[in-house]
Amino acid sequence: MTHYPDLSRYSYDESDQEMLNVGWLAPEHDYRKGLVDERVVDALRALSVGYDYQMRGIHECEFCGTDRPVILGGPALDTEVWLGSAEIRVRGADGMFYAAPNLVIHYITEHRYCPPEEFCRAVARTVGIEPGEHLTLAE
């Protein structure tokens, strides 16, 4: 998978909507680590079930070599979802769109990746969660 810095302009595929990148990680690049509110993780799991923005090919985790991690996702968090071949896109309150590989869930839960606060707020907003003051705590 290609690395893009967080909040850089999205250019992975053609889209007529301006978006920002989140969670396009690679081992040779440092990333922000910390804690992410469990509500954000559950919201990402809920959003992952549709395999929206399916891409060609499958990407394994380059940090631990896990091939196609599987999570429980969907509204009831009871549907098997394979990670590594789709994106999750969300819209922030300011209208900005964010695009993340669905592997972002694995990166958060297994590698302590801490996405930008504005992305976490957009995720929460998308599923109807009223976020508190902070949804992330970076180290």
Rank of each mutant, 00 (worst) to 15 (best):
A100N: 09
E80W: 08
I88D: 00
E87Y: 10
V41P: 02
M55F: 06
E87N: 13
V127R: 05
N102Y: 07
R45W: 06
G74E: 04
D16K: 12
G84T: 00
P115F: 03
A122C: 08
G50V: 02
L7T: 02
H59R: 15
T126E: 14
E60Q: 13
M19H: 11
N21R: 09
W82N: 08
E118K: 08
V81Y: 00
G57N: 06
E60A: 15
P69C: 06
Y98H: 05
G92M: 03
A26S: 15
S48P: 06
T79M: 10
N21K: 07
A43H: 03
V90Q: 05
N21G: 06
I58F: 11
D67F: 09
W24T: 02
L103G: 10
S8Y: 07
H59A: 15
S11H: 14
S8M: 04
T136A: 04
H134V: 11
P5Q: 12
I105G: 03
L44Y: 00
G73L: 01
E130C: 05
H29W: 13
S48W: 02
L135Y: 00
N21P: 02
A46G: 05
G95V: 07
Y107V: 06
C114D: 03
L47D: 03
T66W: 02
Y53I: 11
T79A: 10
L25Y: 10
A86E: 03
V40Y: 01
F119S: 04
V81Q: 01
G128Y: 07
T126R: 11
E80R: 15
G23S: 07
Y12Q: 08
S11T: 09
L47V: 10
I88Y: 01
V49D: 08
L25G: 04
H106Y: 05
T79W: 09
L47Q: 04
V70N: 07
R121C: 04
R121M: 06
N21A: 15
V49N: 06
V41R: 02
M1G: 11
P69H: 10
H134S: 11
R68W: 02
I71R: 01
R39G: 04
Y4P: 00
V49Q: 10
H3Q: 08
G132Y: 01
E28A: 08
Y51F: 12
D30N: 15
I105V: 05
D6N: 15
Y53W: 14
D37L: 08
I71K: 07
P27I: 01
G34H: 02
V36K: 03
P75A: 14
Y51D: 09
C64G: 10
A46K: 13
S8L: 08
G65S: 09
H134W: 10
Y4C: 05
P27M: 02
R9N: 10
R89I: 12
C61G: 07
S85F: 11
V81C: 01
P5H: 09
T136N: 05
S85K: 07
S15Y: 06
G57L: 05
V49E: 09
R39M: 07
R121K: 14
A122I: 02
R89V: 13
P101E: 06
K33W: 06
T2A: 13
Y4M: 14
T66N: 05
E130T: 13
L35E: 14
Q17N: 12
H59S: 15
G23W: 05
G95M: 09
P75S: 13
A99N: 01
D42I: 02
E133K: 14
A43R: 07
Y113W: 10
E60Y: 12
D67R: 12
R68I: 10
H111S: 04
V70E: 14
